[in-house]
Design a protein around this nucleic acid. Structure first.
Length: 314
DNA sequence: CGCATTTGACCAGCGC
DNA sequence: GCGCTGGTCAAATGCG
């Protein structure tokens, strides 16, 4: 198998539509194997590989369809969550001193045990005034990230540039809480608090406040990664100690930039496209996936990972 | 030398 | 009013 083909495949620009790129790769692979110097068996092998790649391409289309289904389910779940949050807020009423207490509550949903998010407006007044203030107050969102418990670093690599300005040990949690400000843009008001969960020290809880006034560095910065700022980690997807690929929910608009209450347009094609790109990037950055894919292309295995298996990897 | 991080001090909000 | 707590500031320190 021509290693250049594998290299060219693995170095595909993930910012483009992955299915389109696979389709573009197929004729490229075909020309490689029509070399007149090859014998008949080589051509048969090439035909087999082309058929294999066609099947992979179809599976990629199948994945996109499954993504549509998953996306529909996501929207349904989000609407249910919004309904539930509305009900619970009306049931529990308001509490002026809830702000501090709420920070210790587990009002977050764990998604596959890797990353979860919660998004809400910071409200501390009565229900009526809360609705008014919600449109004025800053956004607050939480995400949970599972990391190696032995890793004591309070770093959440979300692609943004953060400057640490403080650290405190809070009363209800022995783990210190780190305070960060967004340093990508001088006037960016976004702040982030990172603290390990008191119950499970392998879980990092990041609380974001405010909205970025600049685009995500991944969209504006060339991936040189040579400048200062240790907080600038791998841009997308977020990959920490857990070997399974993860989606960068923030990048998807589900993190601090998401606002379930303000009706973020999750049906927008940009969002859908971003979702597809994130999943493709996650797959491509998964060493297991790339290895398996390379093996499939090189014909070392007869059955490529099915769409279901690929989803299980995520 | 410039930048980020660390860490003790200070301030503000809240409960009693 | 006082004490507790979380959040922020800023000087000191470390690192490339």
């Amino acid at each position: 198998m021509d290693s250049n083909c594998v290299d060219s495949f693995l170095s595909l620009d993930l910012n483009s539509d992955p299915s389109m790129q696979i389709n573009e790769l197929l004729p490229r692979l075909g020309t490689d194997f029509t070399d007149p110097g090859r014998d008949i068996s080589a051509k048969e092998e090439a035909d087999g590989l082309e058929a294999e790649l066609t099947r992979v391409s179809k599976e990629n289309e199948k994945l996109n369809m499954m993504l549509d289904v998953m996306y529909g389910g996501l929207q349904s779940l989000q609407s249910q969550v919004i309904d539930l949050m509305g009900k619970t807020s009306s049931e529990t009423g308001s509490n002026a001193s809830k702000k501090r207490k709420d920070e210790g509550n587990d009002n977050r949903n764990v998604i596959n045990g890797n990353i979860s998010y919660t998004n809400h407006m910071e409200c501390s007044s009565s229900e009526d005034s809360c609705k008014k203030q919600c449109s004025l107050s800053k956004k607050v969102s939480n995400i949970q990230i599972r990391t190696n418990p032995s890793d004591t670093a309070l770093v959440v690599k979300d692609g943004y540039q953060w400057r640490k300005y403080g650290q405190k040990v809070t009363r209800d949690n022995p783990s210190p809480r780190a305070y960060f400000k967004c340093s990508f843009a001088p006037a960016c008001p976004v702040k982030k608090k990172v603290q390990r969960s008191a119950k499970d020290r392998s879980i990092l809880i990041a609380t974001y406040e405010g909205e970025h006034i600049h685009p995500h560095p991944a969209q504006t910065d060339a991936p040189s990664g040579s400048s200062h700022g240790g907080a600038r980690g791998p841009l997308i997807p977020v990959r920490l100690m857990d070997p399974t690929p993860k989606l960068d929910l923030n990048q998807l608009g589900l993190g601090q930039d998401a606002d379930m209450h303000s009706g973020l347009n999750h049906t927008a094609p940009e969002f859908h496209r971003c979702l597809v790109e994130q999943m493709a990037a996650s797959l491509a950055k998964d060493p297991g996936f790339t290895t398996t894919l390379a093996a499939a292309i090189s014909g070392r295995i007869h059955r490529p990972p099915s769409a279901e298996n690929l989803l299980e990897r995520m």
